[in-house]
């Protein structure tokens, strides 16, 4: 299957996000792909937008099966979540389980006014009543494959699509 160019998708995503930004918007990227996207979005959208990073390791629903991820990163939400319109950013939307974990974690910081999910790719296969409001690209990828966003040294994005281990 031909994967789209993530740089082109990033531009589309940026255009869709732009009109949504208000004074009460805060951008939160999910580690790691969503955090990279957020990092690139901020200078375009205005650097003074409140922003943060979530690592959902402590909220995952497969902890009992898989244990703790080896490399957890601290979540950093350096603003007051209360009454904010949160723009949640991730690279690939799949089952919805990561987003559920991210929303649970966000609510432990406060009660946001709303949460909007924006992703680069919706690869299909959701298992929960959760879906992105914004996705730059929609497709169907078999469950046996793993689509991942990665980053070159210069910060530009590329995709890999590999068979699951």
């Amino acid at each position: 299957m031909n994967l789209p160019n993530p740089e082109a998708l990033f531009e589309m995503l940026t255009e869709q996000i732009k009109p949504m930004i208000t004074a009460k918007t805060a951008i939160v990227g999910i580690h790691s792909g969503g955090a990279w996207l957020t990092e690139r979005l901020l200078p375009i959208l205005g650097k003074d937008i409140e922003n943060g990073i979530l690592d959902v390791s402590f909220y995952r629903d497969d902890f009992n099966q898989r244990g703790l991820h080896n490399e957890t990163k601290p979540s950093q939400i350096p603003f007051d979540v209360q009454d904010k319109h949160i723009l949640l950013i991730d690279d690939v939307f799949y089952t919805g389980r990561t987003i559920r974990a991210a929303m649970n974690e966000l609510f432990d910081y406060g009660r946001p006014a709303s949460i909007t999910l924006a992703v680069l790719v919706n690869r299909g296969g959701r298992e929960l009543p959760i879906a992105p409001q914004i996705s730059a690209f929609n497709t169907e990828i078999e469950a046996s494959k793993n689509l991942q966003l990665l980053r070159h040294q210069d910060g530009t994005f590329y995709f890999t699509l590999e068979e699951n281990e």
Binding site: F58, Y59, D108
Partner: peptide, 8 residues
């Protein structure tokens, strides 16, 4: 944080 707990 406001809620000093994680569900692990």
């Amino acid at each position: 944080r406001e809620v000093k707990k994680v569900p692990l």
